[in-house]
Design a protein around this nucleic acid. Structure first.
Length: 739
DNA sequence: GTTCTAGAAC
DNA sequence: GTTCTAGAAC
């Protein structure tokens, strides 16, 4: 099989890199494609070189679109423009698994043998492949390991204007020498089951085969050989990117997992503090804390690449040789650094006003706006006002978009000194006091951040010591994971033998979820070590299964969904109701996650849950006497934290979409509350009936028991079926009808 | 829990 | 060609 031909087949797709960049770019790009250079047909390398040289001469920027898998192939292209041309490589190095499945699919050999052969060819190619290095003469290399890397890179190049330059360096991976993707051997065994085929998949395959070299002419740009890497791998705005290049040369550390504080420059905008003095203070305080804090990152953020304060701080950081993996400057909206710029961060500082109120302008308005009303409420709980030089850390409720979208767990409000006569407490140019107060402000900010990090580390540690019989390094994992949160990180783990660390990385490791994750480690560990352990402790909850737990622990922070907060339970609307009326009665008892854990001591709680549910049913029946209700638990719930479903039997809801939805409420999987209470009362526990097959059984009408071929047909039937309910449901008060 | 989507079923 | 399911990803 000829890999280049394979690449060409998919290269014709519109989703290739050049095709996406060229139309949206204001730069004069020329694409040199070996596959089409010979009057639409495949040409030679020499033809490519010739065309590229002539385009460069005309002042064009050039894409070299061909398989440049090894150094030798690339060498002549890199040399083309001479020392005044910027030479970039964009390496589209997507999972090997994908290449193989695509190539198998493409050649039409889906059988076991051919599939295996195709996989072997790809495997050989990948083994041979040599990723580009800066030492070959590239000024910038961007390695894309997944779709979102590719998208970020596309954005970067699409935004590149005729005169713009990009920072030099190696972006995207710690080890540019990596040759073969782990897990490939495991994939080979599965090669007989080719993965699905789409256009976008096709383009990914091509990409994998052909690291492509893009050259752009840039007269007047001085070429640098040994350039730095940045702790950034996605950047949209190229101009702004220049400001990212603050790191010391030679550093290849992408310390992306470390707890990260993003902070604006305090007092330098509206409060008109002198920039020179402010930058000195920032550098001094950063130097002081960077070593003290251990494995964390401090990131100074400003909106514009023209930011004076960023350039000053950047220059001074370089001068002072501050570790660029621990401190760097970054251009972007502080409320969107993760979603828009790919920077993982956990805590942000706000340049607050003394009332700690939203509004005003600048960072304060922007953070309060982005965080939603939840931040204002949470802030009020912590403090009413703030003195200059002080800060206050506010845990961000999980309802805040900054939490869910960006992964920010805390906002630290900081009030700096004011030099603006139009604002309160103006220091009238008294920079002796001013510098002292600004120093205090940063000290307070960094100490608050340190305290958040320490608390979380301790929490993780404490739980481990208590819960894990054989720590096996888990402690370390948890600490590492603790502050990590990466909503937009779709980089897949290349390892297929998922260990605890890998697994944990898949969680959104917010501070709140950290606890839950630790719980997971324990249970999974115990499960592997001891098969005899009770089922109630072996369940592993995914990160998405924590929502009800969070609500139960902090119902006051979820006023948007919570209907009623009582001592033992919380009542809320099911987020995706499967009927006209669908409530959840949620226990507030921590650690009671599902029915299997319920024992005699929970009887009172079960009765309370039932009674509260019944009270709401009565209310609903008064509003609509045609409704009929059923109260019960899912035998094996998807969401953590024991919850009772209170659901009307119309099942008239757009959210009821699949067999599992239907069967979870209409087979023995649905465990009537009255039966649970009876069973726990009689036998001390609920009898297990979480047979997975219950969820995939045929679809039957809950009234007349007729079977239906699919969900739409079933829904159409139940909307009209008025047959009486089965005898069993009418007994023991399982169904609740109007009096 | 939902969303996304390939491909099976119609 | 369209509908629907089911599995993966989150």
């Amino acid at each position: 099989m000829d890999i280049e031909n394979a690449a060409k087949a998919k290269g014709s797709g519109k989703s290739t890199f050049c095709d996406q960049v060229m139309p949206s770019s204001t730069r004069p790009w020329v694409r040199i494609c070996q596959d089409t250079i010979g009057n639409g047909k495949s040409g030679t390398k020499a033809q490519c070189l010739k065309s590229a040289a002539s385009a460069l001469k005309d002042g064009k920027s050039v894409f070299i679109d061909r398989c440049n898998l090894d150094r030798e192939q690339r060498l002549e292209f890199v040399k083309l423009g001479g020392p005044n041309v910027d030479v970039h490589a964009v390496v589209l190095d997507l999972p090997a698994k994908l290449c193989i499945s695509r190539s198998i699919k493409r050649t039409g050999h889906e059988g076991n043998l051919q599939g295996g052969k195709a996989a072997a060819v790809v495997n050989r190619m990948l083994q041979k492949k040599e990723l580009p290095k800066l030492s070959e003469g590239f000024t910038r290399i961007t390695l894309c390991l997944n779709e979102s890397d590719v998208q970020a890179c596309l954005n970067t190049y699409s935004a590149l204007g005729p005169m713009d330059t990009l920072p030099n360096g190696y972006f995207g991976q710690k080890n540019p020498d990596a040759k073969i993707q782990l897990g490939i051997m495991k994939f080979l065994k599965k090669a007989e089951v080719p993965a699905a085929n789409t256009i976008s998949d096709a383009s990914r395959i091509q990409s994998s085969f052909s690291p492509q070299v893009f050259q752009e002419k840039n007269p007047g740009y001085k070429r640098v050989e040994n350039v730095s890497s940045f702790p950034v791998n996605t950047a949209k705005d190229l101009k702004e990117c220049e400001d990212l290049a603050v790191c010391s040369a030679g550093s290849h550390i992408l310390n992306d997992d470390a707890p990260t504080l993003a902070f604006p420059s305090i007092s330098t905008s509206d409060f008109q503090f002198d920039l020179e003095k402010a930058s000195d203070i920032i550098i001094k305080k950063v130097e002081e804390f960077v070593n003290k804090l251990g494995n964390v990152r401090l990131v100074l953020v400003d909106l514009s690449h023209r930011s004076k304060i960023l350039s000053l701080v950047k220059a001074k950081a370089t001068e002072k040789n501050i570790d660029s993996s621990k401190f760097f400057t970054f251009v972007g909206d502080i409320t969107r650094l993760c979603s828009e710029r790919g920077l993982h961060y956990n805590v942000i500082a706000n340049a607050a006003n003394w009332r700690l109120k939203p509004g005003g302008g600048g960072v304060n308005a922007s953070i309060f706006n982005a965080a939603g009303p939840a931040l204002e409420v949470a802030t009020k709980e912590q403090a009413k006002s703030l003195q200059p030089g002080k800060s206050v850390a506010v845990p961000l409720p999980s309802t805040s978009p900054l939490f869910s979208r960006e992964g920010i767990t805390h906002v630290i409000h900081v009030l700096g000194p004011n030099m603006n006569p139009q604002r309160p407490n103006c220091l009238n140019n008294d920079y002796i006091t001013g510098c002292k107060v600004l120093s205090e402000a940063y000290t307070s900010l960094f100490e608050d951040f340190a305290s958040i990090v320490r608390t979380q580390a301790k929490l993780a540690k404490g739980k481990n010591v208590n819960l894990v019989t054989n720590p096996l390094g888990l402690q370390e994992h948890n600490e590492g994971v603790n502050m990590k949160h990466s909503p937009n990180n779709d980089q897949k783990s290349k390892r297929e033998d998922v260990n605890y660390y890998d697994k944990s990385k898949k969680y959104k490791g917010s501070l709140y979820e950290a606890e839950a994750n630790i719980h997971d480690f324990r249970t999974e560990k115990e499960h592997t070590n001891n098969d005899k352990i009770d089922a109630s402790t072996t369940k592993v909850w995914g990160s998405w299964a924590q929502a009800l737990y969070h609500i139960a622990m902090h119902p006051e922070k979820h006023k948007d969904v919570v209907l009623e907060i009582l001592d033992d339970v919380v009542i809320l609307h099911d987020l995706y109701p499967k009927a006209r009326r669908h409530l959840l009665v949620l226990t507030r008892s921590e650690g009671l996650d599902c029915l299997t854990a319920v024992r005699k001591e929970h009887l009172n709680l079960l009765r309370t849950m039932h009674d509260v549910g019944m009270r709401w049913v009565e209310k609903f029946l008064q509003e609509d006497a045609s409704l009929i209700f059923r109260l019960g638990y899912h035998s094996a719930p998807s969401m953590r934290q024991l919850h009772l479903h209170v659901i009307s039997q119309d099942f008239d809801s757009k959210h009821l979409k699949n067999k599992k939805h239907w069967n979870s409420f209409n087979t023995a999987f649905f465990y009537d509350s009255v039966d649970v209470i009876k069973d726990v009362s009689n036998h001390g526990k609920a009898t297990l009936r979480d047979d997975e097959s219950l969820l995939s059984t045929e679809l039957r009408c809950h009234r007349c028991r007729s079977a239906h071929p699919n969900i739409p047909r079933l829904k159409s039937h139940i909307s009209n079926c008025r047959a009486p309910f089965p005898h069993s449901l009418l007994q023991s008060g399982r169904l609740v009808l109007p009096p």
